[in-house]
Design a protein around this nucleic acid. Structure first.
Lengths: 118, 118
DNA sequence: TCGGTTGTGAACCTGATGGTTAAATACGTT
DNA sequence: AACGTATTTAACCATCAGGTTCACAACCGA
């Protein structure tokens, strides 16, 4: 799982980690603050943060004994692009665009009878 | 990892599985066809396909001894929405929109001196 | 019915994940 | 220097992921 994309998707594949990101979307927070809503040891949260940091989804500062976490959503860019590549397969607006194009040029190819039905 | 979103991200967190999806984007394919570019046993590919199917990213037909796989990109909807929630944190157009809004209303709040600097 | 091809299932192995508890570290306060 | 708070590290454990090989099932063709 050495590539960045895998690391990103992997990091996002855990509810606890997604909850942490959601929390950080509303502002930086310390580890203890992030751990508070979860029934889990601080050490476990610390591990999750390491995964998120490794994926470039958060960064950590240093303020006295606190290590405030900061959302680095830019780490999702590549993942977003990946998924967008597939949007045309499900998005209705793409589907209707496809229909529209079909209407415009009902027969531009010069061969293949295209008789296959059922 | 019972929730759909986790399953989706998990399925996407593997290069082999992403390659399979990419291949299916250009049309349905049998298991052997999908396996061909990978240095891996057929059984391993079969497992990957099960993961993808479990995440709702592909479906499988049945034609004689072949089990043609079909891309079900709709399974990415939720994942796409999730990531889009964070786009404003990195997308430049969102950033400049923020700047623009700031220009429009430099002081709309009635209280808090907001003197905190550095 | 006997092969040949396609795909899955079961058993197995190795290494990684996700959690635990118990030290250890880093820092501010007294 | 000693204490308290915040966080990480280490050691450990159970389970899972991803791969293997081998046997088997499903199907076509002769």
């Amino acid at each position: 799982m050495t590539d960045a994309l895998s690391a990103t998707f992997f990091a996002l594949a855990d509810p606890t980690r997604r909850a942490i990101l959601a929390r950080l979307a509303s502002g930086d927070a310390t580890v203890t603050e992030l751990a508070e809503p979860h029934e889990m040891s601080l050490a476990a949260i610390s591990k999750h943060l390491k995964v998120l940091e490794g994926a470039g989804l958060i960064s950590r500062g240093r303020e006295a004994q606190w290590r405030p976490c900061h959302l680095e959503a830019g780490g999702m860019r590549e993942a977003a692009s990946f998924i967008e590549e597939y949007r045309r397969f499900w998005d209705d607006s793409f589907a209707s665009l496809k229909e529209y194009v079909k209407t415009l040029e009902p027969r531009t190819d010069g061969g293949k009878p295209e008789r296959k039905r059922k």
